[in-house]
Design a protein around this nucleic acid. Structure first.
Lengths: 137, 137
DNA sequence: AACTAAATCAGTAATGATTACTGTTATTAT
DNA sequence: ATAATAACAGTAATCATTACTGATTTAGTT
């Protein structure tokens, strides 16, 4: 199952590289429709999962969203999900100091802790501004 | 939409109280089948969500599991998900010191951070023991 | 450049957890 | 008791994702 080159996969990867909004499979699909009019949604899913499996991109899963998002940036960083518009936003690097979190959790636990999933929720800047305008009107 | 009493909801709540394994809706459903042979899976889902909405139980959502789990214990505590058997296990209270986590994340972010979702992954005790036995055999 | 094996494709069907709908039954306040 | 409405069981629908299919691309080998 060695990975062969494919124009579709290359396009999916480079599309992801141009975006900072962590698109869903559906969004990647519609973004590639102009270049590949016949591309299949299944192809997008398969390649995104393959790329994630290979560690070339990151698959972001937020329990309360129920939709997978994909990130070209595989470096360790945190995400924020807006409760209102569901936007997925990167948090600045200052917040990336969660190194000791696994060790803290391991205290008194008899299983093997290998990692954690963490993301933040709230209201994004855009929705805050929109909400302020709504109050005035 | 004031909440009326129902035998089914009461049974669901007390069933959840007896369990420490954070059952899924399906598991609650099959657990109540002997007492309520005609209970509907939809009823279980509706009541679990209602109880969670009312803050009487907690709905646990793990992105990579894709199945909701429910917890009678609504006090703040952390969960561990086994990558092998998918068991959901409580972490001891010592690990509950993540109070400053939201403030740390808010540094340099212009949205409003209202909370976070956090859980740990790894191999549970049972699977570790089973794995060790497998190596011997 | 032709040949072959395997990966990938587009298209479509299936999956599985969850939610929505419908006509009936149970609960609660008057 | 009665009336209003929440909740029920049963079933159908939803929706993101995965699996299946026969045709097409890719890439190493002659």
């Amino acid at each position: 199952m060695a990975m062969k080159f494919s124009r579709q996969r290359a396009a999916i990867l480079s599309f992801l590289q141009t975006r900072k909004d962590h698109p869903t499979a559906e969004l990647v699909y519609s973004g590639l429709k102009s270049e590949f009019p016949n591309i299949s949604l299944g192809t997008v899913y398969r390649n995104l999962n393959q790329l994630a499996e290979a560690g070339m991109i990151a698959k972001l899963q937020f329990g309360d969203l129920g939709i997978d998002h994909f990130d070209y940036d595989t470096a360790a960083h945190q995400h924020f999900v807006c409760n209102q518009c569901n936007a997925v936003i990167d948090l600045p690097a200052e917040s990336n100091s969660y190194a000791d979190i696994d060790e803290r959790a391991a205290q008194g636990f008899d299983g093997k802790i290998m990692g954690h999933k963490l993301y933040f929720c709230g209201i994004c800047r855009e929705c805050l501004l929109k909400g302020a305008c709504d109050e005035v009107n």
